[in-house]
């Protein structure tokens, strides 16, 4: 279910955190569903167990997952809809931030970037979604 790139400069635990959030946002991990144990995910990805444990601890602190001793880690069943919307929101926010960082590093100014965003919005959100909301 998850994939990490250990060679990347991005810490592995951050990659795991992002993938879990993405899986929840996409619904691949459903509310109430159990996550793999630290050991099985470590062996599955061939990654140090402490690295996985660190990712799970951070996810717990952010209330993205819940862990109960002896039972393992779960996607909270609670307010499922809000949770998966929030996960989707977080994942999208991160991707947008990465894209904007790239735009800044290309030396584009704010006005140019705003125009680019407008154009992308017209493409992907052709109908004014605000009216429906």
């Amino acid at each position: 279910m998850f994939r990490v790139d250990p060679r990347s400069g991005v810490p592995i635990y951050l990659q795991v955190i992002e993938q879990v959030k993405r899986a929840i946002a996409l619904g691949t991990l459903a509310p109430g569903e159990q996550l793999p144990t630290v050991k099985s995910l470590a062996l599955g990805l061939t990654v140090n167990p402490n690295t996985i444990a660190r990712a799970y601890r951070d996810l717990e602190r952010e209330h993205v997952i819940e862990t109960s001793p002896g039972r393992g880690s779960f996607v909270p069943a609670g307010n499922a809809q809000t949770d998966s919307r929030r996960a989707a929101h977080d994942a999208a926010e991160k991707e947008l931030a990465d894209a904007l960082r790239a735009a800044r590093s290309f030396g584009l100014d704010r006005r140019t970037v705003t125009a680019l965003i407008e154009r992308a919005l017209d493409h992907w959100f052709p109908h004014d979604e605000q009216e429906r909301a």
Binding site: R7, S8, G9, V10, R101, R104, S105, F106, G107
Partner: peptide, 13 residues
């Protein structure tokens, strides 16, 4: 600056 970037270092770097 004209452009600015923050590049991650790999463990090898």
């Amino acid at each position: 600056p004209r452009s600015l970037d923050v590049v991650d270092l790999t463990l090898e770097d």
